[in-house]
């Protein structure tokens, strides 16, 4: 390197910068337009994913055992609270079964095969997380061989956490809803207000200081109250209807006072993900 003149070094730097920007632009375009990455990248990612499991599984297991010890400490209190909830849940579950059966019969009667609410759940473990502050992204251990395709919604615990951004054969990347990049595909959601009106809209971003999801440009006159539940509406895409997103925390006027802006408290803790569920819709 020492024998290069300044001129030659400058040329190398400029060429590197140009090539770098070209590669970045191409890969961003591929990420936005294509449903899967190029075959070489897919193959490479599959191999790297397999090797990564050798490192990731022991460390995740270690953290699991540590957290189970700390969880042991407040087991008693939790147990009492959960017992109460279980008795209520059994009731709800039986009713849910009856309703699902009735729903199926009614659908058959009007010869409707599948509606927006139908999906199968594929559960996956989180292998690793992108070590970057710009991309809130995790890698999960299920890919196209398990039926996962791009843009499918991903849930954890009781609520929505993100969408599938890239699919390889045996692993895929999930972009969390905390990711604020410009190219992120936003979820179409709806809110049923206390008076029974339905308000449709699109999630617009994530406010990192308050930890709330925002929803913008709502022009309805319906009164949205704090605590109203936000669910996916199933419109426009592969997201099924009725996935729980969170509760309305605050409704304010937008920056220019023309529309309403909502702040939504997410249903699950978005920073602590171990097992997630991909909602594979039947299409």
């Amino acid at each position: 390197m020492q024998k290069f003149s300044l001129n030659r070094r400058l040329v190398i730097i400029i060429v590197c910068v140009i090539v770098s920007f070209a590669l970045m632009t191409v890969s961003v375009t591929i990420r936005n337009k294509k449903s899967t990455p190029p075959l070489v990248q897919q193959f490479g990612n599959d191999i790297v994913g397999l090797v990564d499991r050798v490192v990731a599984i022991p460390t995740n297991g270690l953290s699991g055992s540590v957290s189970s010890v700390s969880e042991l400490l407040n087991t008693y209190q939790e147990n009492q609270q959960l017992k109460k909830q279980v008795s209520e849940l059994a009731q709800t579950k039986v009713r849910d079964q009856t309703l699902a059966k009735e729903n199926k019969q009614l659908k058959k009667e009007i010869s409707l095969n599948s509606s927006l609410t139908d999906y199968t759940a594929v559960s996956a473990a989180v292998i690793t997380r992108t070590p970057s502050s710009w991309q809130n992204q995790v890698v999960i251990n299920k890919g196209s061989s398990a039926g996962v395709t791009k843009n499918m919604p991903v849930m954890s615990g009781s609520g929505l956490v993100g969408r599938v951004a890239e699919v390889n054969k045996t692993n895929s990347k999930v972009e969390l809803i905390t990711d604020n990049n410009d190219t992120a595909n936003r979820f179409a959601v709806s809110i049923t207000t206390k008076s029974g009106k339905t308000v449709n809209g699109v999630l617009s971003g994530y406010n990192s200081t308050t930890g709330q999801i925002t929803m913008d440009n709502i022009t309805t006159k319906a009164k949205i109250a704090k605590g109203d539940k936000v669910v996916t509406s199933g419109l426009g895409g592969v997201t099924p209807k009725g996935l729980y997103v969170g509760q309305v925390a605050k409704a304010t006027g937008s920056d220019y006072g023309l529309s309403t802006k909502l702040y939504i408290t997410p249903a699950t803790d978005l920073s602590d993900l171990n097992i997630v569920t991909v909602a594979v819709s039947k299409q």
């Binding site: 970045m24 191409v26 890969s27």
Partner: peptide, 9 residues
């Protein structure tokens, strides 16, 4: 390729 999915950084 594996972590960010954006090649070239």
């Amino acid at each position: 390729l594996y972590y960010t999915g954006i090649f070239g950084i």
